[in-house]
Write a protein that binds this DNA or RNA. Structure first.
Length: 272
DNA sequence: CCATGTACCTGAAGGC
DNA sequence: TGCCTTCAGGTACATG
C-alpha cells in the first residue's frame, strides 16, 4: 500500500504520539506479524527515536529496535488513553503503553511485519539510498543508472538502488519526466537523469504535502485518508485522455506490476 | 538484478 | 444469485 510519502506521514505522526512512551505489553494476533529476533523484552522499553529509510520505519527503543514494514495494506493506528477501540476487522498486532494508550497494527492482507531486533543494520543496509536523502545526488544517481541494464521501471522498483518509490510514484514520475517505463536505465543521459531525479522528488514532496495517496487502504495514524490520489496523471487512468496530449493512457504489465503511461509523451530513450 | 513467475493473503470488482 | 478470474501502494525467492 504505502510508498515513501505515506510512510513519512506515519513516521511524523508516530513521533507526535508515541515518542517517550514506555511499552507495557505487546500481542501478535497473527503468528507472522510480530517477528521477535531479539532476546530482550519489549515490555519496559521506552520509545527514544522514530525514523525511516525508504518504506521501512525504524523505532529505536531503550535497548532494541522495531523495524516496521507496512507492505500492501498495513496501517498503524494510535489510540489515546481511554479512547474506545473502533470495531476494526483486521487487527494483527497491538502494542500497549504504560499510560494506557496503544498502537494497533491493522493489516488486511497480512503481508506487513513488525520485526523486533537488537541491531537494525542488516535490514537497513539491504536497502539503498532513500529517495529524499541528500546522499542521493545527481552524480550518484547518474552512475547508478549507467551501471544498470534493467528497464527504468524495474530499476526504480528495486529498493537496493533508490528506496521509497513504489508502483504509483514511479509511474507518475516517469510520465512527468517524459520517459517510457521500458527505457533501459543505462540509456538515460545525464541530462535526463538530473531531470528525473528532480521530478521524483517533486512528486514525492507534493504527495507528502497532500498527506499521501489513498486508493483503498492507506490511512494515517489517526485513521484519515490522504488527498494525493486526486492528482494522479497516469496511475489508474488507463483509457483516459492524457493531460498533455490527445493520446489515451495505456496500461501494460511490467516487472509484474500494472504500468501506466502515455505512449506519445513518454519516449523510449535509446543510447546515442 | 535480467526478466518473469510464484508465494505470501484477503477481498473487491467484473464477466458470464 | 453465484461461480470464476483478475487485480491490488510490496518484497523474497525460484526459474530460464
Amino acid at each position: 500500500m504505502p510508498e515513501l510519502p505515506e510512510v513519512e506521514i506515519v513516521v511524523r505522526e508516530l513521533r507526535r504520539f508515541i515518542l517517550a512512551k514506555t511499552i507495557s505489553n505487546s500481542v501478535s494476533h497473527w503468528h507472522k506479524t510480530i517477528r521477535n529476533l531479539s532476546s530482550s523484552d519489549l515490555a519496559g522499553q521506552r520509545v527514544n527515536e522514530i525514523g525511516r529509510t525508504g518504506k521501512y520505519i525504524l523505532v529505536r527503543l531503550s535497548k532494541t529496535y522495531l523495524v516496521v514494514h507496512l507492505r500492501m495494506t498495513g496501517q498503524l493506528l494510535f489510540l489515546q488513553t481511554g479512547q474506545v477501540a473502533p470495531r476494526e476487522n483486521h487487527i494483527r498486532a497491538e502494542i500497549f503503553f504504560t499510560d494506557g494508550s496503544r498502537l494497533i497494527f491493522k493489516d488486511l492482507r497480512k503481508f506487513g511485519r513488525i520485526c523486533h531486533v537488537d541491531d537494525p543494520e542488516p535490514v537497513i543496509r539491504a536497502v539503498g539510498l532513500d529517495a529524499l536523502s541528500e546522499d542521493l545526488n545527481q552524480p550518484v544517481f547518474e552512475q547508478m543508472l549507467k551501471n544498470s541494464r534493467m528497464n527504468i521501471k524495474s530499476f526504480l522498483l528495486y529498493q537496493k538502488y533508490v528506496a521509497g518509490l513504489g508502483n504509483i510514484y514511479i509511474d507518475e514520475s516517469l510520465f512527468r519526466a517524459g520517459i517510457h517505463p521500458v527505457t533501459p536505465a543505462e540509456c538515460i543521459s545525464n541530462k535526463h537523469a538530473a531531470n528525473l531525479l528532480e521530478i521524483m522528488r517533486e512528486v514525492l514532496q507534493s504527495a507528502i504535502s497532500n498527506m499521501g495517496s489513498t486508493i483503498s487502504d492507506y490511512r494515517d495514524v489517526n485513521g484519515n485518508a490522504g488527498n494525493n490520489q486526486h492528482f494522479f496523471k497516469v496511475y489508474g487512468r488507463a483509457g483516459q485522455t492524457c493531460s498533455k496530449c490527445t493520446a489515451s493512457i495505456e496500461k501494460i504489465k511490467l516487472a509484474g506490476r500494472g504500468t501506466h503511461f502515455c505512449p506519445y509523451c513518454q519516449k523510449i530513450l535509446i543510447q546515442e
